[in-house]
Design a protein around this nucleic acid. Sequence first.
DNA 1: CTCTCCCGCCACCCG
DNA 2: CGGGTGGCGGGAGAG
Length: 910
Amino acid sequence: MEVNCLTLKDLINPRQPGLDFAIEDGENAQKENIFVDRSRMAPKTPIKSEPIDLSKQKIFTPERNPITPVKLVDRQQAEPWTPTANLKILISAASPDIRDREKKKGLFRPIENKDDAFTDSLQLDVVGDSAVDEFEKQRPSRKQKSLGLLCQKFLARYPSYPLSTEKTTISLDEVAVSLGVERRRIYDIVNVLESLHLVSRVAKNQYGWHGRHSLPKTLRNLQRLGEEQKYEEQMAHFQQKELDLMDYKFGERKKDGYSDSQDQQLLDFSEPDYPSSSANSRKDKSLRIMSQKFVMLFLVSKTKIVTLDVAAKILIEESQDTPDHSKFKTKVRRLYDIANVLTSLALIKKVHVTEERGRKPAFKWIGPVDFSSGDEERVDVSASVLPELKRETYGQIQVCAKQRLARHGSFNTVEASERIQRKVNSEPSSPYREEPGSGGYSLEIGSLAAVYRQKIEDNSQGKSFASKKVTPPSSSLDPAAPFPVLSVDSEYCVSPLAHQVFSVAQRDLQAFSVQNGLNGPAGVVSRASAASDVESLKPALLAGQPMVYVPSTSLFMLYGSLQEGLSSESASERDSRSSEVTAAAEQSSTPSVQKRLSEERKPQEEEEPATKRQSRDCEDGPLSLVMPKKPSDSTDMASPKTVGNGGSVPLEDIQRNGQLPAGKEVLGKATANCFVSSEWGNPSRNSEIEKPSKENESTKEPSLLQYLYVQSPAGFNGFNVLLSGSQHPHAVGPSSGQLPSLSVPCMVLPPPTLGPFPVLCSPTMPGPVSSALGALPNSGPMNFGLPGLGSTAHLLISPAAMVNPNSSTLPSTDPQLQGPHSLNLSPVMSRSHIIQPESPVYGGHPVSAVKLQQSPAPVTPKSIRRTHRETFFKTPGSLGDPVLRRRERNQSRNTSSAQRRLEIPSGGAD
DNA sequence: CTCTCCCGCCACCCG
DNA sequence: CGGGTGGCGGGAGAG
């Protein structure tokens, strides 16, 4: 048997485990094959006994409770991680194809998988390769199958801010197959998303993806409705009463007469009508309406915290159901479902409130709070705490970061988040105390981020924002993108964030997540983001400060998982697209809503061509899913049909979208855009963090320094040196297996003062670095030799290239931002994200950058490496999902996803 | 034990 | 009618 298996496997995967394996994966050659074979081959036998396969998790998360160990598990654990294994993981994380494939494996062979996994492991053992670990898809734990995680994966498939020009349709079947879940689950997600207008139903089994463009507006509307409904009063009422389920007193409703009719209207307020579908049946709306109401509760709440029981009671009351216990239970279940999705959207986070009766599950709004035009509903913690947090926390974080950096080259954002959390908790104004271990300090950060965000927005979107939001072109989002550089301006350590972060508009950083999810694309609000937000207030780059870029494997693992579906376009395509976008943006030149909000807007922020690019940053969904839209239609997509006030929404959103980015971009360019990344990445982190699950932990160790960017180290006459911090060739460029690993790769960047200057790269530049450089779009102003292909990376930057065209045009309102350094770095880094993700040559390596205060080069490559390695081993478990037990049809659909992948490569630089 | 919430039956609705 | 939807709540994992 074993032999047979081996043979089969070999056939399937001719390549040897290890690098070969990785490489092949890169070519999605076998995705389907493997998948199919496995399912067929899989001896349906054995190991079903194991109820849960935690093997993977265990591996990654030591602390996990030992749940019934399975033989397999034990074996796996015993197996030492080999470089190849690591590589494999990295690759899988970085390569959409691989991820996809693996996912499929896991998904499609849920139970059978075990068997497969087992066999695989055995085979591997025989072979002697530990790489197999990857294969062993642990039986997904309950958490892994959670709706939240699923939602994160779902969200990871689509750009948070899709270009107005492209329509993305969601095929429920395809998604279900792709995510390896039953369609029923997708309905749950979609219904909630629909309630927020992130999607709309287009036809049977088809939904249109709108993204978050109109989210602010939607929230505003919900807030208004909530106020009208006097939800606040109701909440207060229930909160006070602390009724037991048994004691509901529904008699005292405060509703004015709104009731059902009103409820029905909820979705309508700005909801686009679905062209092809008839109005939703009332019944259908249930979950959607419930979701909207739930959100409304948060929006009208002063504390922004809503306990489930109160929410359930209010909902029951409104529904006029008889308040029985079972109803309550059911309601709570639904609320959890909704909450999971909202959490994935980084709109809320789980917390607990302690009341007389004890601790109660609750959720706290961490989404945007400023969407309320004009009104300051701003609430709670944020406002009051902000100043202090800024000062104190910031300082703490700095210290922490420094220490960390000194030690590991990175610091765990968690620490910072904890501090922040404490701070927040201590906030007297809040009636509720979040319990310290409950969940999520990371989340806290998210809320913080929201606060800052708000502040930022209020102030000027331009400057701070700009720095932050340097939106990398869409490519940056790509999993494969070489260096989505995450930057942390300040001392904050940036935790690697998931892709979505990138796509997320600055203002919505909060939302993010990926996340979750990478495993979650999580949802992604991350503490990091919070930090970044804070940071954003400051100039992104300070002259003279050394920067450390930290590509983290974990980051990209997360990123990868989140990004599964993302595809990138070729640079040329982007360019063309950008032009389109621009045109579109220009069309809708109405002032963006945001603008209104921000009084201090800077002139420079006005529309700029650059903006377009920003807007483009949105990742593309899977190709198959993305349908090019006619230019004329561009706006339509966003809101197929907006009714009433909503009508203008899409445009506004679009504009906003475009404008903001532009402003940001400009600034970013002036400064170093790339550095902004920190915020982006956050989301993923958050999601993970939020999830208590151990799996996340791997991600918790955010940054691994692989590269160090040292500004003008002594003796370098102002030259900046980019050193590879990591010795792991694998880590660096999994996809580009050919890249030679260099022991001491380095890149010398010209000092700002020199202006345009050729970039010098050590021949031995490690793959990652080179890839990063290579990331620069060919078409872009900068010309870099593409590293890949094994040849030494030769980077040449033409003088002209050094300065971003846009930047030149940009008014230099912010001197700080425009510091010389920024100029110097920005061109290179900012562009880095451009690389095509799919290109085999470049492995996407998200990079997070940490700015050190003054120390020239506090971190040694070695130390960095060390950290990296640790993290490295802790890769987050694969999304491994659930299994499709009996879904044959799904399989047939799989192909679609596969196709998607295939298409992606088009963008290749080559 | 409680909290969560996955799972999937089965009713409803639509074409 | 058949297939898409999704309400609903049993029951089990997680803590």
